[in-house]
Simulated scan of single mutants.
Amino acid sequence: MTTKARVESYYAGAYWGPRKETAEECARRTATFLDALSRYDSFLAEWFKPAKSLKDARKYRLMPPDLAALAELFSAGVNRADAGGVIERLGFGFWFDNGGPDGDVAELRIHCGGYSDAVPNSCVLTLPRKGQNAERLLTAQALAAIVRAMVSPWEPDWAFATSYDYYQENRKAASDPFSLGWVTYLSNRIGGVPPLPAPVRIEPVEGKGTLIVLTPERFTASNPEHVALAERVRELLDRAGLLKPLQAQP
């Protein structure tokens, strides 16, 4: 009896250090990112405001990006103390999706404007697990394009796209500030990327940083060759002093 191979789920995330911003500034960055996604693939061109029910959510489109609606969502997504006051240093955050069915949906979770070391700022895009959209988007080319689309609006210290399985199984520690992905971006603020072994591909990104693509084929946590390659690249980046905590930004 054969065992069915586990289907791995994938996501892309951009992360940056403390950067104090208003809800309106976070909305503008989000709008720029959503525009970039919509230009890349039609599946990523429709997004909806979060709501109490699926039926209600489909009434409230965010595309083309509605700056006022995005700013309102960020303002509502503040952290509050037990007494009810806003904890300003923790920034703003909210979650929304593109309306697809279970397994064939993209979801975005954004945390922006925080200036505390306790909670990093981030933009995390969860990708579909199955269907034609997954087949099209879960490629090195597509994920590299998605990570590139994160760089200009968010100005992250680092970003990556990988499988949840790999992240969970190979993260060094819960406090580890850096994770290597199938596709990884490192800002020039962190440092220059050293030569890396084949089949790894290195590409510049808008004069802002470097993109590292581990393998042209689908990277999986179940492939020991992929895991060994990722570990070797991580060792080289660590030796070059690139695995640093997220840096505070003006």
Rank of each mutant, 00 (worst) to 15 (best):
T2W: 08
K4R: 14
A5T: 12
A5Q: 11
V7R: 13
G13E: 15
G17P: 05
P18R: 09
P18N: 11
R19M: 10
R19C: 12
K20M: 11
E21K: 15
A23R: 03
C26P: 07
A27N: 03
A27R: 06
R28N: 10
T30V: 11
A36M: 08
L37C: 07
D41L: 09
L44Q: 02
K59F: 04
R61I: 10
P65W: 01
A68T: 14
L70D: 02
L73T: 01
F74G: 02
V78N: 05
A81E: 14
G84Q: 04
G85C: 08
L90C: 10
L90D: 08
G91S: 04
G93A: 14
F94T: 08
D97Y: 07
G99S: 10
P101M: 07
V105D: 14
L108I: 04
L108M: 08
G114S: 08
D117L: 12
V119H: 08
C123R: 07
V124P: 07
L125A: 05
T126S: 15
L127D: 01
A134P: 06
E135C: 10
L138E: 04
T139P: 03
A142V: 05
A144D: 04
P153E: 06
E155L: 14
P156C: 06
P156R: 03
A159H: 01
A161T: 04
T162E: 05
D165W: 08
D165C: 13
E169T: 10
A173V: 03
A173E: 10
W182G: 08
Y185S: 07
N188A: 13
N188R: 13
R189H: 09
G191E: 06
L196S: 03
P199W: 00
V200R: 01
V200E: 01
R201Y: 05
R201P: 09
E203A: 15
E203K: 11
P204A: 10
E206D: 15
K208W: 02
T210W: 01
I212S: 08
V213S: 13
V213K: 04
T215V: 14
P216G: 07
T220S: 09
P224S: 06
E225R: 14
E231P: 09
L236K: 13
D238Q: 14
D238G: 10
P245F: 03
L246V: 03
Q247P: 14
